[in-house]
Design a binder for these strands. Structure first.
Lengths: 304, 304
DNA sequence: CTGAAAGCGCTTACAG
DNA sequence: CTGAAAGCGCTTACAG
């Protein structure tokens, strides 16, 4: 299918010859090894540049026994439409990973996880396909990690953690944002509030709900209704029905912006006036948050 | 940061010893080399399995001078918000690439293209970081490819092509879908039609517009208005203003579903009745198409 | 400061 | 059918 790359590739020894040094010294120059003088380094680099010599990562990787790749493990089943890919969340995570990986000379490999066992995940590292794994989307109860940890497979979670386990993770603290929300509502003399939670298969959903409840108590607000969504816009839309069954809260705090957006759409459809009848608070700062109508109070520009 | 993987790794020679064969034979067994008997192959494989031997791809890659990776080059600038990642289009392309790559023993490497020169792209292949490049999002006039081609760098486009160039590409033919649309409208005795086009930096936008015009002529329909969008939902929303400036077409054909969705939202906001006042036709079959209200005529279920 | 040499773990042509 | 050997292109410890 693909045509093969140019065969008459420039090799390290071509550079060595032209520069009048040994191949070892070429390597040292290219890798900024301090044992050779800067003058030699620059001269060799210049010649390498001129000849178009590009060191092969394959040799380096092989010698160092490192692939310089990190696998990002995405839940993915095409049939079941489990696709986290097309979300802003994934976009951001991926971009962050790409940035910091490239700073360290690593690249990111996408791994479509259609239900790998811990052994299969382990093999990705043992075969040196990747050096380690990032899990950006984990559900509570995923039991593959104790095996990986025991085997010394390097891995890290994003927005997930397991209590009392030494697993590394990156997460954000939902408390400050949630506190800001409730504080704001409290300052506006709002007392009867509701909550639209996320899918409790994810630990952040549980955390945010708990934080919400604790803060409601702290600010002496009355929680009149709590509805469970699943973080999707659709679930926000559907939550309207649940909220209309009971006394409508003066404000509804949502566990993320996508649900807030769907909730807003659904409430408008039911002719509930926003923010007069009920105020909506999102969470996440996703781009979608800037597209609502009415616009967020901190973003009083026109729709677009 | 990351803990390193287990040190006492099982090597090929451990398997060889236990199986009473040479390391070469272990390789042959693992790789299903037909020169050794199946009985030997199976015995060796079983022992490898028991000992937990996993061949290193690093050695193989090095020997074969192949990385077994394909780079998928995504336009990406965080500041300028050029992010194709969070779209269903990218999700589908990526998944397809992952699937077919894995069938051939390849993996997919994400490359965030914040404006690479052709030389930088070339280096990705010369350094054997990847074996070839996929460009899933190209703008007309991208002039980096003649250099890559001349240098023998393997690359392939998705939904892009350059006329009179031998560059490989994968695309879909927009004509049958567009014809189906116009044929349908024609059968319904609809005669005054409009078009909402995509961003003409992309060749598909131009193609679809041209196909639309040609077909309108073929079916003897009158094109009363053509508006340019940029494939986004927002641009569909904004196009409403343009469509309302002139005589409203009986039907508007959109170059993709996202714009059709936005257009629908915008028209509803202006209290234009769908499909009584104007019919909307999308293009693409994106998931978003199933979420419209009113639902598509071929999908008469409730909203969700 | 620099070169010659060893070795990273594989695959495969070669010899038997 | 199978083993010993060469070699893929690097890095680096060692010797000078």
């Amino acid at each position: 299918m693909l045509r093969s790359a140019k065969k008459n590739k420039v090799h390290r020894k071509d550079v060595a010859k032209k520069a009048g040094v040994s191949p070892s010294t070429v390597s040292r120059a290219i890798n900024d090894n301090p044992s050779i003088p800067v003058s030699t380094r620059n001269r060799v680099k210049k010649i390498a540049e001129e000849l178009g010599y590009v060191p092969s990562h394959l040799g380096r990787n092989y010698y160092q026994k490192k692939s310089f790749r990190i696998g990002i493990v995405m839940p993915f089943s095409y049939d079941k439409k489990v696709r986290v890919f097309p979300t802003e969340y994934f976009s951001k995570v991926l971009f962050g990973a790409l940035l910091s990986a490239s700073r360290e000379g690593y690249t990111i490999n996408i791994i479509a996880d259609s239900g790998f066992s811990s052994q299969e995940l382990e093999k990705l590292v043992l075969s040196h396909s990747v050096d380690g794994l990032i899990f950006p989307v984990c559900k509570i109860g995923d039991n593959r990690f104790s095996y990986l940890y025991k085997k010394g497979i390097p891995f890290i979670f994003i927005h997930y953690y397991v209590r009392n386990k030494p697993y590394l993770y990156v997460d954000c603290d939902s408390k400050p944002g949630m506190e800001e929300s409730l504080q704001y509502l409290s300052s506006k003399k709002i007392n009867r509030i509701g909550f639209l939670g996320g899918d409790e298969e994810y630990i952040n959903a549980i955390d945010r709900k708990k934080i919400f409840i604790d803060l409601a108590r702290k600010y002496k607000m009355k929680v009149v209704n709590m509805v469970n969504g699943n973080f999707s816009r659709t679930s926000g839309f559907l939550a309207v029905k649940e909220f209309l069954k009971k006394e409508l809260p003066e404000a509804i705090v949502c566990a993320n912006d996508r649900m807030a957006f769907g909730l807003l759409e659904g409430l408008k459809k039911e002719n509930v006036r926003i923010p007069e009848a009920v105020r909506i608070i999102g969470f996440d700062n996703q781009d979608i948050a800037t597209l609502t109508s009415p616009p967020p109070h901190y973003y009083r520009k026109s729709f677009f």
